[in-house]
């Protein structure tokens, strides 16, 4: 166990935060618990030796939290009560437990935690990136050399998707349509 115990504790914290986020009544508490999950995830990335991801996760989580609080604050209407449909709930629980068992069974086919695939497969592309990344691209951070040099087209696609999503959000949130501005009012 040793150093993994910290990772274990962090994952338990994340799961508890997720349970609170799912089951609490107040929407604002739920959103803030989601923020706790995101920051816990950032700590987990740091423990897993991924500092770039930890930084990005913190930045993304703050922006997401601002959006979610904007969406929920002041709108905490009466929680949806009604009668709970026990039959469908039990079917869903049964399916989820079955899914969990299948998952645990299939995790046996993976390598043990702590031995990455690059240590088992000699000609994996990651080995080449690690070995030649500094001399070929001049970047000391191998992650940077992968996203900005070896797989720069992926980053271009990412920028396209991000731009399209922001464009969609702005279009949906626009207060008045152009027709309304010119015509009826």
């Amino acid at each position: 166990m040793g150093e993994e115990i910290y990772l274990f504790i962090t994952l338990i914290f994340i799961i508890l935060g997720a349970l609170v986020a799912v089951e609490t009544r107040s929407l604002l508490s739920s959103v803030i618990s989601l923020g706790a999950v995101g920051f816990g995830l950032s700590i987990a990335f740091l423990l897993l030796m991924a500092p770039d991801l930890a930084i990005v996760q913190i930045a993304v989580e703050v922006i997401l939290l601002i959006f979610l609080i904007r969406a929920t604050i002041g709108r905490d209407v009466v929680p949806t009560t009604g009668h709970i449909n026990w039959i469908s709930l039990s079917i869903v629980s049964l399916l989820i437990v079955a899914f969990l068992l299948i998952g645990i069974y299939s995790f046996r086919s993976l390598l043990e935690f702590g031995t990455p695939i690059i240590s088992a497969v000699g000609e994996a592309p990651s080995n080449s990136y690690i070995e030649n990344g500094l001399s070929r691209t001049g970047a000391a951070n191998i992650v940077t050399s992968v996203i900005l040099d070896y797989r720069a087209y992926d980053t271009l696609g990412e920028a396209t998707v991000l731009f399209t999503a922001i464009l969609g959000a702005l279009t949906v949130l626009r207060v008045r349509s152009r027709r309304e501005l010119g015509g009826r009012r």
């Binding site: 993304v60 690059i118 990651s126 992650v143 797989r151 991000l162």
Partner: peptide, 14 residues
């Protein structure tokens, strides 16, 4: 550690 998943997950988070 393996740098390739880190680079792709960076994209995925954004």
């Amino acid at each position: 550690v393996d740098p390739l998943p880190q680079a792709l997950v960076l994209t995925s988070i954004v």
